[in-house]
Amino acid sequence: MKRVPTYSLYGVNSAEPLSDQLHFESIAARSRLHGWEIKPHRHERFLQILYIHAGGGEALLEGRREPLRSGSLVTMPPRHIHGFVFTPDTDGMVVTMTEPHLRTLLAGVPDALPLFEHPRHDRVRRGHALADALALFRGEMEAVSAWRGASLSALLTLVLIGIARLGNAEQPAAARRSSRPARHFRHFQQLLESDYRAQKEIGHYAGAIGITPTQLNRVCRQASGQSALQMIHARVLAEAQRDLLFSDLEIKHIALSLGFSDAAYFSRFFARLVGQAPTEFRQSGRARLPAFAVPPARDPAG
């Protein structure tokens, strides 16, 4: 059974840890070795930032195909599937950091951390403060100067704050406030991400947060427009869709891995929310994806 591969760096097995908290390289340095194609994968413990100075290509971000061009900035948190195809003239950089290092750099602005929980693709125009910070980071990255590590950390903090500001500007005003409901909502998101496969009851999450199920539903509706149960179902559904599109796992194995007692129950759940049976979704979804995203056919002889 083939799952979506999990890497620490492009094409590097996940058992090989980063030698440091931070790694950076040009896009060409690794992509050229793989024919300018990075097949779909995810990182279990690392956040990645990819910035294109020139050239372009195409990104696969959680099933969405998005064109890449000069100024494209992709922020990819842990555990989210992504892949890339670059044109051979692409000039850019990739920065990889551990989650603890991200928290260390943003220790002074903890409210910014939730803004790095979902993939982003931004276009950063020339002259923007974030573009200037990225250019300074690249210059320091390519230089060998005294106190280089301290300079890179300072510049990377500027880059992270710039990315957070982009995300913050897109948030509804209610979600931007550091209110108690907002903190409860972020706590629920964190708990849900850690154990969504178990499909625990709303009361479990409410108790862990220290509020009632009714309060949790109200918090979720205010912040996302969905009830707590809808958010639980949406998270389970998102993982099911990933496995259907990017792995060759059988339906029954996907169902069991997501806490369903049998494949029939999972299929009814999936069809009710998506309007297609899992097999139909897999076939139609792969037909719309770029060829590099589709798992190779299994060898009957192997």
Rank of each mutant, 00 (worst) to 15 (best):
D111I: 01
A112M: 09
A112H: 11
L113R: 00
L113P: 07
L113H: 02
L113I: 01
L115V: 11
L115W: 01
F116Y: 00
F116I: 08
E117W: 11
E117I: 04
H118T: 13
H118V: 05
P119F: 03
P119N: 11
P119V: 14
P119D: 04
R120K: 13
R120S: 02
H121E: 03
H121A: 10
H121L: 15
D122F: 12
D122W: 07
R123Q: 12
R123A: 14
V124C: 00
V124F: 02
R125V: 12
R125C: 11
R125I: 08
R125W: 06
R125Y: 11
R126L: 04
R126M: 02
R126H: 11
G127V: 08
L130P: 05
A131N: 07
A133P: 08
R138C: 15
R138E: 14
G139R: 14
G139W: 07
E140Q: 09
E140T: 11
M141H: 07
M141L: 13
M141Y: 11
E142H: 12
E142I: 15
E142S: 13
S145P: 04
A146Q: 13
A146V: 01
A146P: 07
R148K: 15
A150D: 13
S153D: 14
A154W: 10
A154E: 12
T157F: 07
T157H: 05
L158I: 02
L160Q: 00
G162V: 05
I163A: 01
I163W: 00
A164L: 02
A164N: 05
R165N: 13
L166K: 15
G167N: 14
G167P: 05
G167W: 00
G167T: 09
G167M: 00
G167S: 10
N168T: 11
A169T: 08
A169Y: 06
A169M: 01
Q171K: 13
P172N: 01
P172F: 09
P172G: 01
P172W: 06
P172S: 01
A174D: 10
A175P: 08
A175E: 07
S178R: 14
S178Q: 14
S179R: 10
P181C: 06
A182V: 12
A182I: 00
H184T: 03
H184K: 05
H184F: 13
F185R: 02
F185M: 06
R186T: 13
R186S: 12
R186N: 14
R186W: 11
H187W: 05
Q190H: 10
Q190T: 11
L192G: 08
L192M: 06
E193P: 00
E193M: 09
E193V: 06
S194A: 15
D195C: 15
D195G: 15
Y196T: 05
R197G: 14
A198Y: 04
A198C: 13
Q199N: 06
K200W: 07
K200N: 10
E201G: 03
G203W: 05
G203A: 15
H204A: 07
H204I: 08
Y205V: 15
A206F: 09
A206C: 11
I209A: 07
I209N: 10
G210D: 04
G210M: 09
G210E: 03
G210H: 03
G210W: 01
I211M: 02
T212A: 10
P213H: 05
P213K: 02
P213F: 06
Q215A: 15
L216V: 07
N217H: 06
R218C: 02
R218L: 06
V219P: 10
V219W: 05
V219Y: 08
C220T: 12
C220G: 08
Q222S: 14
A223N: 07
